[in-house]
């Protein structure tokens, strides 16, 4: 299901009320001209999965945090921010989750350059 960025929180709230109480994963795909942020939600009772896709512009990459609905979103959102450079609004910013380097660039974006030293910039 494709939704607008502004409709994310209302949609998620509605889905949670209708039984989709389990967050399976948050991930993203970089299609160069757009980044699709993907939410996989599950209703344990109905045994059904639902996929929400939100298109965002890579030059203005941000999305609302859904932590108030799913605590499990915490690390997925941090990973998203670190790997795709999608800023998460409405939550406390924390240190990098996976990378131990202070590098620039976002590894899972397609314009990330391999083997380039970012130290000297």
């Amino acid at each position: 299901m494709n939704i607008e960025r502004a409709a994310l929180l209302p949609t998620i709230e509605k889905m949670k009320q209708s039984g989709f109480d389990y967050l399976v994963k948050i991930t993203a795909v970089d299609y160069i001209k757009k980044i699709n942020v993907i939410y996989i939600l599950r209703s344990l009772e109905q045994n059904k999965d639902e996929i929400l896709e939100v298109e965002i512009d890579p030059t203005d990459a941000w999305i609302e945090s859904i932590m108030k609905f799913y605590l499990g979103a915490d690390w997925y959102e941090r990973e998203l921010q670190e790997m795709f450079g999608v800023k998460i609004k409405g939550r406390v910013a924390k240190r990098l989750l996976l990378e131990k380097w202070d590098g620039k660039g976002f590894p899972l974006r397609k314009n990330f350059v391999w083997n380039k030293s970012y130290d000297k910039e």
Binding site: V24, T27, G72, W75, L108
Partner: peptide, 14 residues
């Protein structure tokens, strides 16, 4: 083009 992996221990450790 893109492979996203949900590993079970990641979310359990969180």
């Amino acid at each position: 083009y893109r492979l996203s992996i949900r590993s079970p221990t990641f979310i359990n450790l969180a």
